[in-house]
Design a protein around this nucleic acid. Structure first.
Length: 616
DNA sequence: CATAAAGCTTAGCTGTGCTC
DNA sequence: GAGCACAGCTAAGCTTTATG
């Protein structure tokens, strides 16, 4: 052993401030494999290491504690089913200053513990389990209570790269004692999934005051109900005097209990707005056999029946669409919207929009507050105003009078993607006076992340017949052809096969959806698209396809226009414009047409030609 | 190296329209 | 008007590249 090497070892040790660095110095110097699996500090077949940063090894109590910890691991090796890990004959307890070596067998009586005098469960390291693949943390409390919370694994790991776990019992007690005094806002961030940022919730209350009057809660005439209260973020800035007139209901009993502590003056109850009391609210649903017992608190029912009262509905319902789609690792939401309200909606021919949870809330609210003086303050995506799928909702249900509102980016919600921002609206609607949306001017304020007004936006309500996606007449596709999953790959074995092209096929035009969100699902392929709605380009629709492609691709997508709809041209297009679109489209990145030889698809061999760039 | 922007993706439920 | 086949549509998005 060269003296320089051992000096370096000592100097590395002295520089160490953390357990991890001590471990690193040892591992380097003794050329040890970094085997730290199963929560062992460092394991070799000969030595089991237990490292500490800086402890007073002279102190008997300290020394015993560290030894006890290693014996816990030895016991686990012996009884925990670690067949490939024999018990090392030597234990090494080390910190920056010193190390203790001892023979494992000397402590056999302790770690065998035949008479079971020690509580080995106590020694368990930590009481949280992080399941990285599912982005979940399981917190274990005393007596086997657990609570599961979702957290981004990146955030979780980042946190623990910055902070160390507190292990000192006195410190833990001191922290627990102070929890009650910590900011409620911070605390609540651990309670739900998507919490309305309180600064925007506060702005929403401001808009409500402007609509119904500044001191609405002082008159005693108003009642407020948030039927998706969650952890009460919307009500966080509600004046104390307003709470006695407020009803907060939420799906989870844990949230209800939490709300009880936060808003003792409000009426708080656990309630499933999309399933509870449906038979009482929708009296024309005899066919469904729903129970007719009331779950709604009597006080609230009496208030609802009191014609003198005015209502404020303040709600940020969950945004979720039942579907099985999703990107590679995205969450599929199959079944999320399977509620009793959905059954009623289907029964009444609301169609696709009944997959949306927020539309289900609206549907019941419309029924429940029919002919009442009520203002609905709704946080939501704005697709109920303009999207193709929500057409029936506008036609049959949503005909309230717009009062005022604002939009802000979805990125203000913690836990949402920063790269896929979309506008979230808070719009206030008068539920008593009914008026078709297309006859109203819907102008909202636009706020940045600091709740500063940066502009206004007009929300356009158009008949879905005017959507650009309905402009080109789709040629019937009957001829079998290999389906493309990208510019150059063929995909088969999908349950939902889309492998047909039309007569006179030149290319296929993938043109999914009708809003900016789907801007990127605009391209040309040399065969049908395996998935997203594509149509055959033929001589007849060639120019139209080129125009639509250019029009969808060229404007810049932003969070604010994310849900804007593309509309059909309202005048005849000039040939110059069409020619420009043709040239631009043919040379665009999204012209993914190719030529491929001998493509095998379902036992047939195909020759795929590039009709746009025909080479011999 | 961290963040922002650009670029790209799935897959099947369900509406719709055609055929008989 | 029942049955069937085709096509529209969606994501409190995902991944890779560019930028500072």
């Amino acid at each position: 052993m060269a003296p320089t090497e051992i000096n370096k070892f000592f100097s590395n040790l002295q520089k160490s401030k953390k357990e991890e660095e001590v471990k690193n110095a040892y591992a380097k110097f003794f050329s040890l494999d970094y085997n730290t699996s199963d929560d062992h500090d460092l394991y070799t077949t000969r030595v089991l290491f237990e490292f500490k940063a800086d402890k007073n090894f002279e102190n008997l109590k300290t020394r015993s504690a560290i030894l006890a910890q290693s014996l816990y691991y030895v016991r686990r090796l012996k009884y925990g089913g670690f067949i490939e890990k024999p018990i090392p004959p030597t234990l090494c307890l080390a910190d920056v200053n010193e190390a203790i070596l001892t023979e494992t067998s000397l402590w056999k009586d302790f770690y065998d513990d035949i008479n079971e005098i020690y509580d080995w469960d106590l020694a368990q390291k930590g009481n949280t389990i992080f399941i990285k693949e599912e982005s979940k943390v399981v917190f274990q409390f005393n007596a086997g209570n657990t609570r599961i919370k979702k957290i981004l694994s990146k955030d979780y790991e980042h946190f623990w790269s910055l902070y160390e776990k507190v292990t000192n019992i006195d410190t833990i007690r001191a922290i627990i004692a102070k929890i009650d005094r910590l900011s409620d806002d911070t605390m609540r961030r651990f309670h739900g999934e998507f919490l309305t940022p309180t600064k925007f919730a506060n702005k929403a209350l401001d808009y409500i005051e402007r609509t119904v009057g500044k001191n609405w809660y002082k008159t005693g005439e108003y009642r407020l109900w948030d039927m998706a209260a969650g952890t009460g973020n919307l009500e966080y800035h509600l004046p104390q005097d307003a709470l006695q007139y407020s009803y907060l209901s939420t799906l989870y009993i844990e949230d209800k209990e939490y709300l009880d502590t936060l808003f003792p003056d409000a009426t708080i109850f656990q309630y499933d707005y999309l399933n509870d009391d449906i038979a009482n609210v929708f009296t024309d649903t005899n066919g469904f056999q729903f129970e007719k017992t009331w779950k709604l608190p009597e006080k609230l029912r009496n208030d609802l029946n009191n014609p003198k009262l005015k209502w404020i509905i303040l709600i940020n319902p969950p945004f979720a669409t039942a579907q099985t789609a999703g990107t590679h690792h995205g969450d599929s939401k199959e079944g999320v919207a399977d509620t009793k309200v959905r059954k009623v909606m289907h029964h009444n021919d609301l169609g696709k929009v009944s997959r949306e949870l927020f539309s289900q809330f609206i549907y019941r609210i419309k029924k429940e507050f029919f002919n009442k003086i009520a203002d609905l303050g709704l946080f939501s995506k704005i697709k109920y105003i303009n999207s193709n799928n929500d057409f029936k909702l506008r036609e049959k249900v949503f005909d309230f009078t717009f009062e005022r509102g604002f939009v802000f980016s979805s990125a203000n919600f913690s836990g949402t993607s920063k790269s896929n921002q979309f506008p979230v609206g808070f719009l206030i609607w008068d539920l008593l006076n009914l008026k078709k949306l297309e006859n109203q001017k819907l102008q909202v304020d636009v706020f940045n992340e600091n709740v500063e007004k940066i502009g206004v936006k007009k929300l356009v309500v158009d008949d879905k017949k005017t959507h650009l996606s309905k402009w080109i007449k789709r040629p019937a596709a009957k001829i079998k052809f290999p389906p493309f999953s990208s510019g150059i790959s063929i995909k088969s074995n999908n349950l939902d096969t889309r492998d047909r092209i039309s007569e006179g096929f030149l290319a296929s035009f993938m043109c999914a959806g009708n809003n900016f969100q789907c801007q990127n699902q605009t391209c040309f392929l040399s065969g049908p698209s395996v998935s997203v709605g594509a149509m055959s380009v033929t001589a007849e629709n060639f120019e139209q396809a080129m125009v639509v492609h250019a029009v969808r691709r060229i404007p810049k997508a932003t969070w604010l226009n994310d849900r804007d709809q593309f509309l059909q041209p309202n005048k005849k297009l000039e040939q110059d414009f069409i020619n420009d679109c043709v040239v631009w489209s043919l040379f665009a990145n999204s012209n993914n047409t190719v030529a491929m030889k001998n493509v095998l698809y379902e036992k047939e061999t195909y020759q795929i030609k590039n009709h746009f760039f025909h080479l011999k």
